[in-house]
Simulated assay, not measured.
Amino acid sequence: MTMTAMAKPEAPSGCFPRAENRCHVVSNAPMNSEYRLLVVDAPETGLSAYAGQFFHLLCPATATEQPFLRRPMSIYRIDRENGQLGFLYKVTGKGTRALASLAPGDELNATGPLGVGFSLPEGTKHVAMVARGVGLATLAPLARMARAQGAMVTAILSARAPEFLMSRDELEAAGARVIEVNDVAGNSAPQEVINRLRDIHAETPIDFMATCGSNRLLGLTRDLCSEWRIPGQVAVEAFMGCGLGMCFACVVPVRDAQGHEEMKRVCYDGPVFGVEEVTAW
């Protein structure tokens, strides 16, 4: 399979419902000292989401926090059987602190699903995912999508320390093989991850790669995709205003097939792009 074998889905108008979903909180619990998992009951429009898309969440006003703009949030879990969505987030500012105040039964206003997500080429047999930190939130649904299409999934999860590693259970439940690396153990450096992936590729050839959460991981993913002549995609993170493509607050530089640079909107043209398009973000 060559890198030209994959056609990225057409995004924009009419491709997704862009609905204002009234969701109700099921749980909002800490996963560790930094991250929380927010699970909500969602209507049918919200459950139409697929891996790599996101929602624009209206953060509640509290006694101490008055968030003005919505917050873009990757989809961590799409549970159509139980009618639920999950969002994994790190509490860093007034918006996420406000989200952390939500309790079971509270209403969450979530616009979406938004953006262009992942697209696996037909016949994909082995997907390798590499993610760091909250980048895991974006890649978790991809594991289920890949397994549903009959592909094997290997996920390399990276973090600063063992206590910040998450999602093993989520990914293993999806049928992925999970490998954890961290800075404390000294096995999370890019060359260490490259060596591990080359060993995996030699054993069972990888024919698609996906990444999120680190420019270093983007670089190594791009290099390996080029070396093995396989397609790969990256989910890009960006500050957003409207989340609908109108305000152009989330543009990033990308390269076209001829190497010419242009600006594209993360919320509308992405957030998922080909690894050969994105240099950094």
Rank of each mutant, 00 (worst) to 15 (best):
E122D: 14
V127P: 07
L114R: 01
G123K: 09
R160P: 12
R147P: 06
L120W: 03
R132V: 00
P141G: 02
G115L: 03
K125L: 15
M145R: 00
A155F: 08
P141M: 01
A151F: 14
V127D: 04
L139Q: 11
A140Y: 01
G112A: 08
A159L: 09
V116G: 09
R132N: 14
P141Q: 02
M145L: 02
Q149F: 05
V134R: 06
M145S: 08
L139K: 10
M129P: 01
A128C: 15
R144D: 05
P121S: 05
L136S: 04
M152T: 11
V130G: 08
T124M: 13
R144K: 07
L120F: 05
L120R: 02
A128F: 15
F118G: 08
A143G: 09
V127Q: 05
V127M: 07
A143D: 01
L114K: 00
P113G: 03
S119N: 10
L157T: 07
A159K: 10
G133Y: 14
V134M: 04
F118N: 07
A151K: 11
T111V: 15
G150W: 12
G115Q: 07
A137P: 01
M129F: 04
A146G: 11
H126I: 05
M145A: 03
L120P: 03
A131T: 11
P141A: 04
M152A: 15
K125P: 09
E122F: 10
G112I: 06
T111H: 11
H126R: 04
A128S: 12
R132D: 10
L157Y: 12
A151V: 14
A146R: 00
I156K: 04
G112S: 07
G135D: 14
L142I: 12
T138L: 00
E122C: 13
V116Q: 12
L114H: 01
R132T: 08
A151G: 14
R144Y: 02
L136M: 14
G112P: 08
T124E: 09
A159V: 03
G135K: 12
R147G: 07
L120K: 01
S158T: 12
F118W: 10
V134I: 03
A143E: 00
L136Y: 06
L136Q: 09
A151C: 15
F118S: 06
V116Y: 04
R160W: 13
A128D: 04
M129K: 02
A155Q: 02
R147T: 13
